[in-house]
């Protein structure tokens, strides 16, 4: 009899834990999907920076190509 009671307690605990975690997942999912998706920023060719520069990395490549 005592064993039966223990088993029931354990089951109710597991059930409560399951419901709780499912709820947490739902909250997180809502928060994620609720965010606005960032639109791609299109920059015109004239405005765009980040063109070629002879950095140390590039100079090192030129040096190895001279071998």
């Amino acid at each position: 009899m005592n064993n039966k009671e223990t088993n029931l307690k354990r089951r109710s605990f597991l059930l409560a834990a399951g419901v709780g975690s499912a709820g947490a997942v739902a909250v997180v999912a809502t928060a994620v999907t609720g965010k606005e998706v960032a639109k791609p920023v299109v920059v015109s060719a004239e405005e765009k920076s980040g063109s070629y520069e002879q950095t140390a990395h590039v100079s090192n490549y030129y040096r190895t190509a001279r071998v």
């Binding site: 791609p40 920076s49 063109s51």
Partner: peptide, 20 residues
């Protein structure tokens, strides 16, 4: 490509931007 340098959109469409 024309997107912002090293952005996710640029990578998906045109690949990596090593020059920048």
């Amino acid at each position: 490509g024309p997107e912002e340098n090293n952005s996710k959109e640029e990578f998906e469409k045109y690949g990596r931007n090593r020059i920048s």
